[in-house]
């Protein structure tokens, strides 16, 4: 057994060639791949660490924001409750005022109704009294009520006091002034003549007369001359009755209003 030196040299060359080729085709690519993978893993770990850190920061921010949000929410709720309370108080005050006004209006309306009712009652009473009086006068004296009232008016005219006569004559400024005589019913020409003569006497002049029928007088005679008025009517008597009835109604209506 001996060493073949050519084979030794050839094997040395072969070996170095193999070293180069394996370095080129095996170790370098494999080690590069391993390095790349390690870098990737390190990158992924760093990325994961960064994400973890970011997530931690975001969590802290979220917690902080949540805290701030809760505080703001509580503050807003408190403000809202206060605002609602204030608004409620305001609305209640306003409703109270409106209710007061409505109560006043209702009270006024009731009083007006009462007044109207009293008026209606008075008018009805006047009419009834007048009819009763008229019937009674006709039945008892056989005389017309208008005649009686005219007679009473003429008596009153005759019985006028000097100062009243002066006021009437002062009202009559010229012959052209119209004397307005109002009655509840159409009166006869005889009575009209009587009235004319009596008034002319008082005026000491011949005036122009207008006779007019005013049903609201009910019964009686009313004389108007340039703002001066002389009258005798049943309504004057009935006004006292009306006042009495009105006063009584008011007294009876007051408690009703208070109760509401």
């Amino acid at each position: 057994m001996q060493i073949d030196w050519f084979t030794v040299i050839a094997q040395i060359l072969n070996f170095f060639i193999l070293v180069y080729l394996l370095k080129r085709f095996l170790y370098k690519p494999i080690l590069s791949a391993i390095d790349d993978r390690e870098k990737k893993i390190v990158g992924q770990i760093q990325d994961a660490e960064k994400k973890k850190s970011d997530a931690k920061k975001e969590k802290e921010q979220f917690v902080e924001k949540n805290k701030t949000f809760d505080e703001q929410k509580e503050q807003r709720v408190k403000e809202s409750v206060d605002a609602v309370k204030a608004e409620r108080k305001k609305q209640l005050d306003q409703v109270g005022k409106e209710a007061g006004v409505a109560r006043e209006e209702h009270k006024k309306s009731l009083l007006k109704m009462q007044d109207d009712m009293v008026k209606t009652i008075a008018e009805k009473t006047q009419r009834e009294v007048l009819q009763i009086s008229r019937k009674a006068l006709v039945d008892l004296a056989s005389a017309n009520l208008e005649e009686q009232t005219t007679a009473v008016f003429l008596d009153k005219l005759k019985a006028m006091k000097p100062e009243e006569i002066q006021r009437l004559t002062q009202a009559f400024k010229s012959d052209f002034d119209h004397v307005l005589v109002s009655t509840a019913f159409e009166i006869s020409s005889e009575l009209q003549t009587k009235i004319r003569s009596e008034v002319d006497k008082v005026l000491a002049a011949s005036a122009v007369y207008d006779f007019k029928v005013l049903p609201q007088i009910i019964s009686g005679v009313e004389l108007s001359l340039n703002g001066y008025k002389l009258a005798w009517t049943v309504s004057a008597y009935l006004d006292a009755l009306k006042d009495g009835v009105s006063e009584t109604s008011k007294q009876s209506a007051e408690p009703v209003v208070e109760e509401k």
């Binding site: 073949d4 394996l22 085709f25 990737k40």
Partner: peptide, 30 residues
């Protein structure tokens, strides 16, 4: 001279190099 040792070495070298080249041709770093 060309003996069996050298020839066998060449064959082994060829297999090693070609095998490595084939495997490392499509290396993945994933």
């Amino acid at each position: 001279h060309l003996n069996l040792t050298i020839v066998t070495t060449w064959v082994l070298m060829f297999v090693l190099v070609v095998g490595s080249a084939l495997i490392t041709r499509n290396l993945k770093s994933g």
